[in-house]
Amino acid sequence: MQADYFAKKRRQSYIYSGLLLLLTLAAMVVTEYDAVKGLTSIPKAADWALSNFYPNEKAMTKLPDIMDQLIETVLVSIAATTVAGVLALLFALLGSQTTGVNSIIGSISRAIATLFRNIDVAAWSMILLFSFGQSVLTGYFALFFGSFGFLTRAFMESIDEIGNSSVEALRATGAGYFSIIFQSVIPSSIPQLLSWILFMVETNIRQATLIGILTGTGIGFLFSLYYKSLNYSAASLVVIVIVCAILAIEYISNYVRRVIL
């Protein structure tokens, strides 16, 4: 019986692997992608990057402007995430199986969260460009909407994981809805909620760089400007600054997670 089960799983694995291989080959034929040419071009690309894509003395004069745009990008990302986190907590409380008011409101909250979560931040940027044009507000609201959908879903799961035991105990003592929320649910789940917010801040700082290219703001716009003007030295400096900022923020975020969890 067990041997038949494992034999069936192996057959399924072979079938799926074969389908994946066929799909890959079909995609290469349709797109006319030359795998051999792609692999052999890697050394040439690396040689060009080492020869051109590095900061020089002239590029270092642009460091103050790059830092100003980096600070703006980081602050916009943090602001969008924290405000979205507050609103997401409200919708998560309404949509959670543990704290939901009723099934209709819960279903509406979950549907809204699913809608916002499944629209990519880049798509939000393009949609919002029609309303706000190329401005900081476009990037802010794109990050806000994307963060809201993700955090609402994550907060719902965190709240549901705390279990119903403490909630039921408070209800048995006659505690009201808001007493249960502020005395049991939020204190029990706040480490996980803060962890999700920190994760979203990291993600938004990465995404804000790409969004800046679309919205014409922030450090992403500077990279696009330098690269299109063939100022590869300044563009490489932007990349280095972004990488250092992301590593620093990730280190701080991991440290805070270790403290609160």
Rank of each mutant, 00 (worst) to 15 (best):
I205T: 04
Y226D: 09
Y232A: 09
L198D: 08
G218R: 09
I213V: 04
G218F: 11
E250N: 05
M200H: 05
L222C: 01
I242R: 01
G220T: 06
W196P: 06
F199G: 09
C244I: 13
Y232N: 08
L247W: 14
S224E: 14
A248N: 01
V241D: 00
I197C: 02
I249R: 03
I240E: 11
T217S: 00
L193D: 13
L247A: 03
L225Q: 04
I240S: 02
I249A: 13
I213M: 03
N204E: 14
L230Q: 10
W196V: 03
S236E: 11
Q207S: 02
G216L: 05
L230V: 13
Y232H: 00
L225M: 10
Q207P: 00
I246P: 11
I211K: 00
K228W: 02
V241P: 09
Q207K: 12
Y227E: 02
S189V: 01
S236G: 03
S224L: 14
Y255P: 11
Y226S: 09
T217F: 07
Y226R: 06
P191G: 00
T215H: 04
S236M: 04
F223Y: 08
S236P: 10
S195K: 10
V201H: 03
S195G: 15
F221M: 00
I246Q: 06
L225G: 05
T203I: 10
W196Y: 01
V238D: 14
I197G: 11
L225I: 01
S253H: 04
T215W: 04
S253C: 05
R206W: 07
G216W: 02
I186K: 05
L214F: 14
V243D: 06
L210G: 08
T209W: 09
Y226T: 02
I240P: 14
E202Y: 14
S236K: 08
L194R: 02
I249L: 15
A208R: 00
I252R: 00
S233Y: 12
I213G: 07
G218D: 06
K228Q: 12
C244L: 14
L193F: 12
Y251G: 00
I213P: 06
Y251N: 07
G216P: 02
S233A: 10
S188M: 04
F221V: 00
V243M: 15
F199A: 06
Q192S: 15
L198C: 04
C244G: 12
Q207Y: 09
F221C: 01
I242S: 10
E202V: 05
W196G: 07
Y255F: 15
Y251D: 06
T209L: 07
C244M: 15
F221G: 08
Y251M: 06
Y226G: 02
Y227M: 09
A235Q: 00
G212L: 00
G220I: 05
I205Y: 07
A234S: 15
V239N: 01
A248R: 13
M200A: 15
L214A: 09
I205F: 04
G212P: 01
L194H: 01
G212Y: 02
S224R: 08
